[in-house]
Amino acid sequence: MAAPIATTAPQPFMQRMRGLAPGLAFCFAVAAVAIVVRNATGIAALNPVVVALVLGIAWRAVMGPTASMKPGVAYAVRPVLRAAIVLLGLQVTLGMLWALGPGALVLAVVVVATTLPFTIWLGGVLGVDRALAQLVGTGTAICGASAIVAANQVARGRDEDVTYALAVITLCGTAALLIFPVLAGPLGLSAREYGLWSGAAIHEVVQAVGAAAAGGPEASQSGTVMKLARVFLLAPAVLALGWWVARQAGGEAAAVKAPVPWFAFGFLGLVVLGSTGLVPAEAVQASRFLVPLMLAASVAALGFSTDLKALKARGVAPLLLGVGSTLWITLLALLGVKLIG
């Protein structure tokens, strides 16, 4: 009689991939739909990240949490997000930053370095949870949704904190997108000044670029590069926030430690590599497609993980915090632009 054919157990890697597949497929499908909606409408306020968040929340509200999707959803929230932040580094070069001039570079550093601690302080005054205040402050100071989900790797807020912070930043940034073009004339800003103001003050990249474009080509160019200068500061800001969180936790419990955000070093590494000119243009272009897709997938996962009841329990204080933080960075950036001419 023939010997039975030996069978091998499935490899651990394949087992894990099968476990992750349903959740990852859901998150990336939602992300793809969000990008299609944004491209089809052409409405700047419909950032794919925002659309993906809404779709993720809606799916959970209607269908409820699904156990089979849980592993893939958790994977999208962290490893996928970190990879997206690293790839974002290909879109910023040191040459772009240098072209702004020393005054504008100092302004970018000042608005980031002061807005984050101001927001954390104001959050304490308003009674906002510390982790949520950190997320609102990071999103306001740097680059909206990307900064919020990156900062949460060290802030360790709840999913509801991230969702609320994203909602607040979206509302405030959209308001700025609509209001800034109206104020350019009354404030007597030149095209370059208006662009720098938009890039230095508005939250999301798409919102800042959209507002700057309303001032013409010169405003669009200066606004875009100023905004990228703030994006460049994402890694140092997350590292600083991680250090601050670790210090705060030191007196609470020895077991509580902020993780080292290695993805921030990856981001900086790709900025330096991209600045050498050795990165093919096709790779940079691919990052422009992949980063929004991966970020939207990560935020769709956050939306799917969010309990609306817990979100409602946060109250109105975080919204007031977002408005106060937005007013701070708006006035600070305007003052800075006037000083550097």
Rank of each mutant, 00 (worst) to 15 (best):
F267W: 07
V256W: 14
E282G: 02
A237G: 11
F232P: 06
A310I: 07
L290F: 13
V231K: 08
A300H: 07
G269V: 01
T224H: 04
L290R: 07
A237S: 15
L293W: 14
L311D: 14
A237V: 14
L241I: 13
A300C: 07
G251K: 10
F267S: 11
G242I: 05
A229L: 11
Q285H: 00
T224D: 04
W262I: 03
W262C: 01
A297R: 09
A296V: 09
G269F: 02
V260N: 08
M226Y: 05
W262G: 04
A235S: 13
A237Q: 06
A310P: 01
G223N: 01
V245I: 12
A255I: 00
L228W: 08
V225I: 15
V238L: 05
V245K: 02
T306N: 10
A246P: 00
E282K: 01
L233G: 07
P236I: 03
G274H: 03
V299C: 09
L278D: 00
E252L: 14
E282S: 07
F232R: 04
L295W: 14
L293I: 12
L290C: 13
F232W: 10
A254M: 06
A258V: 09
P292T: 04
L270G: 09
V291W: 06
E282R: 04
V279G: 00
A264V: 14
